[in-house]
């Protein structure tokens, strides 16, 4: 049920391949305005592929199905146009951009961004003059991604394991940034910004709030529901439990 009434993201029967390999097999999923969803699933099930396809990375080829964003069919839209329309993504393993400083990157994301405040919020001031991602540790890469997203101010933010390889201190900072990006300071019905987060262990969920969770197995979403309940089930029974739940003996 969409909190704001409308649907920010609507995916219907999405089939996606990379090269010869079929990765997504008929994904259906929708995210309402102001909602934040979590996406669980074992390694290689297609979670990153789903986020990359929504972002429009060219090597993820949509074979059939549609992606609608704020009512617009973006299935075949170039990547940068999707970004300009309001889609933001935090990369799990972003490349180093030689010669481009973090402060310049902030301006590229949004010339009007308040760089000083954003850097301060993420405790990232001393990285302002560093080249983007060059020699960054795991936690620094994640904070750098959050800095860029806070500048970009997307309407829909996608986060691919923002808590992997990150210590507790960084998880708190990143969780706070995600809450800012998804307007958790506003009352639910006033929120318009949405998001999807991939997490393996759910640590980050202690520091941010989610409205709904989905479980993806072998390229399809097999279960959706309350994030806490689903995470508990996965913790107790593993993803095998999800499969068993789908195919009760």
């Amino acid at each position: 049920m969409a909190l704001g009434g409308g649907l920010t993201l609507q995916i219907e029967d999405l089939w996606v391949s990379i090269g010869e390999k079929q990765v997504l097999e008929g994904v259906n999923m929708s995210v309402g305005d102001g909602e934040t969803h979590a996406l669980f699933g074992p390694n290689g099930c297609g979670k990153t592929t789903l986020l990359s396809t929504i972002a429009g990375i060219p090597r993820y080829v949509v074979d059939s199905g549609t992606i609608r964003f704020k009512g617009v069919d973006i299935t075949n839209m170039p990547m940068h146009e999707r970004a300009r329309l309001g889609i933001g993504i935090a990369f799990q393993h972003p490349p180093t951009i030689r010669g481009l400083r973090v402060s310049d990157m902030i301006k590229l994301c949004n010339p009007q961004a308040n760089a000083e405040k954003i850097l301060a919020d993420l405790d990232f001031e001393e990285f302002a003059d560093r080249e983007v991602n060059k020699g960054f540790s795991g936690g620094e890469v994640k904070r750098s991604e959050m800095v860029q997203l806070l500048a970009q101010e997307p309407d829909f933010v996608m986060l691919d394991e923002p808590d992997s390889g990150v210590d507790l201190e960084n998880i708190k900072v990143i969780g706070r940034a995600i809450n800012t990006l998804t307007q958790k300071d506003l009352r639910p019905s006033a929120r318009t910004k949405s998001g999807v987060i991939i997490t393996h262990f759910g640590h980050i969920l202690d520091y941010m709030s989610t409205d709904k969770a989905h479980v993806m197995i072998e390229g399809t979403i097999v279960c959706s529901g309350n994030p806490i309940e689903i995470l508990e089930q996965i913790k107790v029974n593993g993803y095998e439990g999800c499969v068993a739940c789908l195919c009760p003996v």
């Binding site: 990547m79 940068h80 490349p95 994301c109």
Partner: peptide, 14 residues
């Protein structure tokens, strides 16, 4: 590198 291009395009650059 294609990865660098995509990274910047994800931030809205053509």
């Amino acid at each position: 590198s294609q990865a660098e291009l995509e990274y910047l395009m994800a931030r809205g650059l053509s």
